[in-house]
Amino acid sequence: MTADMTNSNKDYLRNVDGGLRRAHLFDEIATATFYIVSGAFVLLLIAFTLYVVWGGVQAISPEIFSFSETGIGNQFFNTVYLVFLSLVISVPIGIAAGVYMAEYAPEGRVTNSLRIAIETLSSLPSIVVGLFGYLVFIIMVNTQWNLFSGALAVSILSLPLITTTTYDAFKALPIGWKHGSLALGATHWETIWHVMLPASVGPIMTGIILAAGRGFGEAAALLYTAGMSTDINWSVWDITSPVCPLNPFRPGETLSLQVWASRTEATSASAGDVAAAASAVLMIMVLVFSIGARLLSRHLAKKSEGENA
């Protein structure tokens, strides 16, 4: 009798009412949906990559990988060189701007207006940036299309990425690290340099990868800045010569522009193959760069943090 009483009294522990049952059901549906959506994206990415790379593999011929007019060698070099130049410009400025916003700019109006300016900059259509670059870096300077102008145009696009990732990384650091350093007699700058920047390497590297990706893939901003032609003579190493590969003030068509041109304007029979091979090479470059940057960032973090306990 008493046992029965106790049992029936504890029914409230065993009971799952309709509302809760529905909540559980929704929980399972939501979980399944997220799995399906993220799985679909991964599949899409893999399929796309394989499609592009497979197209490239089929198009392979020694001719295409040559540094001649019908190959993609020169464009490959131009792409690497342009991304390198744009990172040389945008990484120091972007990190400095992010640090300034996070650490020096007065909170409130200054940071807010800077943020709005940066967000606007990052949402500019790249063709607008390209035409702006054409006006400012080419016409106003009274020069011809050149790689350096292209790098400047790409820097305008990639600066906001590096600035915001640096800013966000600094803002996410525990305030205790900053106070701890200052309390030990470090100046503000020493604190930034020795504690805050090393602790932000990972997120900043993400910004750099995004910025480089922008450079690798950019076409519209380069149309009227870096130009649509490339004329390199690999035996000329006088940097002032317009055909020297390392001269940044020569026109330099990149891979993505070459893809675009081959698919739209080219008349030669091999244009399709060139586009396929260039796309594949571009994709592999971005992948290699991302993985390399991640490894570098992990190495730097390990060096600064010490080994894991």
Binding site: G176, W177, G180, A183, L184, A186, P198, E305, G306
Partner: peptide, 24 residues
């Protein structure tokens, strides 16, 4: 010197934490 409410070691090795001030 100061010790805070929340332990706030830097994301560095134990050695580098202690050597931080002297290095400065």
């Amino acid at each position: 010197g100061m010790v805070f409410q929340q332990p706030n070691p830097f994301p560095k090795s134990i050695y580098d934490n202690v050597a931080y001030g002297p290095r400065l």
